[in-house]
Computed example of a mutant assay.
Amino acid sequence: MLDTATKKRIDDCRDILVGKLPDPKAQIEQITIGLIYKFMDDMDKEAVELGGTTKFFSGDFEKYSWDSLFDTKVTATEMLSLYAKAIESMVKNPNIPQLFRDIFNNAYLPYRDPETLKLFLKTIGKFEYTHSEKLGDAFEYLLSVMGSQGDAGQFRTPRHIIDFMVAIVDPSKTDTILDPACGTAGFLISAFKHIKEKTKKA
Rank of each mutant, 00 (worst) to 15 (best):
F100L: 14
K25T: 14
Y141I: 11
F61T: 04
Y83Q: 02
L80E: 08
G136Q: 12
Y83P: 00
E88N: 11
Q27E: 08
F164W: 15
T72W: 06
S132W: 12
P22K: 14
I96D: 04
L121I: 09
I124W: 04
L82R: 07
E49C: 09
F100C: 10
A5T: 10
S132H: 09
D170Q: 15
T53F: 04
V166H: 03
E140T: 00
K200F: 12
L82E: 00
L82A: 00
E88K: 05
I28Q: 13
M40H: 11
G51H: 09
I189E: 12
L143E: 08
V166W: 14
L2H: 11
K196Y: 13
L143P: 04
I195W: 04
A181T: 05
A86Y: 00
K200A: 15
D175L: 06
K45R: 09
A107M: 05
I10T: 00
Y83I: 08
P158W: 07
I31T: 10
F56T: 02
D41P: 02
D163T: 12
K38A: 06
P22M: 06
V91W: 02
S81N: 14
G19Y: 14
E115K: 11
W66H: 02
A76K: 08
I103T: 11
K73Y: 07
S190T: 06
G136W: 06
P180S: 07
D41C: 15
T130I: 04
T176Q: 14
K126H: 05
D42I: 05
D44Q: 06
G186I: 01
R101V: 12
N105G: 03
L99S: 14
H160P: 09
I168V: 13
R101L: 12
L82S: 09
N105V: 02
L2E: 09
D151G: 01
K200E: 14
H160I: 11
M146I: 05
A5N: 13
Q27N: 06
M79A: 02
K193D: 13
H194A: 08
M90V: 00
A167V: 01
G51S: 08
W66I: 00
A26V: 10
K200N: 09
D175T: 04
P158A: 09
A202P: 03
K25I: 14
F61K: 05
D163W: 15
S65E: 05
S148M: 15
D163Y: 15
K118T: 10
M40Q: 13
Y129S: 01
K201S: 15
I162P: 13
R14M: 15
V91L: 10
F100K: 01
P24Q: 11
E133C: 01
E62W: 03
L135I: 11
V48R: 11
D60W: 02
D44Y: 01
E29F: 12
F192A: 13
